[in-house]
């Protein structure tokens, strides 16, 4: 894999996105709305049972991501530029890596705004390290973008792809969501340190690696027509 080719693709996507900001603005708006609504509906319960919080936060990321992340490929498909990408000598692994990194940057952008917003809105107790919690979220989102970038291509030729993507994505993501919510709870509510969530971290990392490898191996087929 050539790093320069991956960077080139990421730069292209970021440049195009920053010019219009269609996707990122939409993602921020949607996730902000979701946090506000959750706060109104469940805010007082989270006050007494803070363990609900991280789950709600992940729900916000999931919905935001599922609506926004598929765009990276769907847009290229709709405009036909996916053909242009496939015509270049870039390997499919490079294309996948570029798209996943671009998606991760989008999610990090959302995360940096929404996570603090969430803490403020819910007056959420941060008993453990904020940085550690942020790192756990980032790790979870990394898995999220790897799997969603890979699976988003599967629905490109499907009818009602916007409906279909969440249905195939959610069950596959289930282990990451459960583990990262549990780790987040340990850190934020339990005030625990890195060593106490090592069990979860290890499995999430293994998941990221295994899913990444499968994605790389199958992506040649995914991009085919």
């Amino acid at each position: 894999m050539r790093v320069s080719a991956v960077v080139n693709l990421v730069v292209k996507d970021l440049r195009a996105e920053l010019r219009t900001k269609h996707t990122v603005n939409f993602m921020l708006l949607f996730s902000g709305l979701a946090v506000a609504f959750f706060s109104r509906i469940a805010g007082s319960y989270v006050g007494s049972v803070p363990e609900i919080g991280p789950g709600l936060l992940w729900l916000v990321f999931l919905f935001t991501g599922m609506l926004g992340l598929g765009r990276a490929f769907v847009k290229e498909k709709e405009l036909g530029t996916l053909d242009g990408l496939r015509l270049t000598p870039m390997s499919s692994a490079e294309i996948l890596a570029g798209k996943a990194i671009y998606n991760l940057l989008l999610m990090l952008g959302v995360q940096s705004v929404i996570f603090p917003l969430f803490i403020v809105f819910f007056d959420f107790p941060v008993r453990g390290g904020f940085a550690l919690a942020f790192a756990v979220l980032t790790l979870g989102n990394t898995c999220f973008v790897i799997v969603s970038s890979a699976l988003a291509t599967l629905v490109l030729n499907a009818r009602a792809r916007e409906l279909l993507l969440p249905v195939i994505l959610l069950p596959v993501l289930f282990p990451v969501i459960v583990l990262s919510v549990s780790a987040l709870n340990s850190v934020l509510v339990g005030g625990e340190g890195f060593l106490n969530i090592l069990g979860e971290i290890k499995i999430i990392l293994a998941y990221a690696v295994v899913m990444g490898v499968i994605a790389m191996l199958t992506f040649d087929f995914a991009l085919e027509e």
Binding site: R19, L79, T81, D83
Partner: peptide
């Protein structure tokens, strides 16, 4: 792919980017 060029009725260009940026992306690719 290294030896062919393809022109279809779809220009395969990114609308938000300038002409030069489009070509820069493809040149690097």
């Amino acid at each position: 792919r290294r030896r062919i060029g393809v022109v279809t009725h779809n220009p395969l260009l990114y609308e938000e980017l300038t002409a030069r940026e489009n070509l820069t992306f493809y040149a690097r690719a």
